[in-house]
């Protein structure tokens, strides 16, 4: 293998990893806080992408891209916030919360996907990437846009981490995730904090959607594959800490790129699922997980 090929695979793996990290962290945040798995996360990625696409139809170029991403993130945050009150809140204290949340989020995903189909039609679209052209990366050519996306994704994750660790609101969210009853006793408005968590998760989904939609293409079902990938990432990494799915995302991304080269791409999904079962058997809290829950 030449250095050029290596650099190429490395770039591919890093970009994939960045995307997965963004997708999975949104999923993990909700999981840690509420203990439910949000099956609508994929559809939220799709919806976020379409909202941004719509904005870029009016304003083009780099400004349009930024505006699109901003509008999309803002709308999705509000939507996520509202979703809590419709999909989770009504049976928050019900014994079958996990199951009921599965079905309501699946139903919400179906509503979003079909609403996208009704409003934007079925054909593939692309959010025009603001940067075209290639840059040299260790002797090989990679699209500039890919690197910009990777940088923004990492910056967004860092911002989220800082928000959770350093600000009062973020600490309140973490408190709810760690011990809901205690947080309630301390006088936090837990409902609103949980709604905020889902809003944050939706916002990261929107951002991931914008990136997928500009690196790849968007269609109403574009979220299905990312959902599965995030699931694998979250399981491998574990959800007990905010950072653990991020490491796992890069491992999965790099593993995918290099295994596709050295083995065959064909068996990559099967290998990932087998890995997932093994990790669950040996270390259910994830490779980077610890026994205690925190964000």
């Amino acid at each position: 293998m030449t250095l050029e090929t290596f650099a190429f695979l490395l770039a591919s793996g890093l970009v994939l990893g960045g995307l997965y990290a963004l997708m999975a962290s949104g999923l993990a945040v909700v999981w840690t806080t509420l203990g439910v798995f949000n099956f609508a996360h994929g559809a939220m990625i799709a919806l976020g992408a379409y909202i941004a696409w719509q904005v870029t139809q009016y304003t083009t170029g780099g400004a349009g891209f930024l505006l699109g991403a901003g509008v999309s993130v803002a709308i999705m945050f509000c939507l996520g916030f509202a979703m809590h009150y419709v999909l989770v809140k009504p049976f928050e204290l019900h014994a079958n919360l996990v199951l009921l949340a599965v079905i309501t989020t699946l139903a919400a995903a179906s509503i979003m996907e079909n609403a996208i189909l009704l409003s934007w039609g079925p054909r593939d679209k692309q959010i025009a990437p603001p940067f075209t052209g290639n840059i040299e990366f260790l002797g090989t050519a990679i699209g500039i846009h890919d690197f910009v996306i990777l940088a923004i994704a990492l910056a967004a994750l860092l911002a989220l981490a800082l928000f959770l660790r350093r600000t009062t609101a973020g600490r309140a969210l973490r408190a709810v995730a760690q011990n809901r009853e205690a947080a309630e006793l301390m006088g936090f408005n837990v409902s609103r904090l949980v709604a905020m968590t889902i809003g944050l998760s939706a916002a990261t989904a929107a951002l991931a959607g914008v990136f997928v939609g500009s690196l790849r293409f968007i269609s109403p079902t574009v979220g299905t594959d990312p959902l599965m990938k995030s699931l694998i990432v979250v399981i491998l990494g574990g959800v007990t800490r905010f950072t653990s799915p991020i490491y796992a995302a890069f491992i999965v991304g790099l593993a995918e790129a290099f295994s596709a080269y050295f083995l065959v791409l064909y068996w990559a999904p099967a290998v990932l699922f087998a890995m997932m079962i093994i990790v669950l058997l040996i270390k259910p809290e994830g490779l980077f997980g610890r026994r205690t829950r925190t964000l």
Binding site: L9, E256, A257, L265
Partner: peptide, 10 residues
């Protein structure tokens, strides 16, 4: 859906 063709293109 194929997420990335780069490894194969390599």
């Amino acid at each position: 859906p194929v997420g990335d063709w780069r490894p194969i293109l390599a």
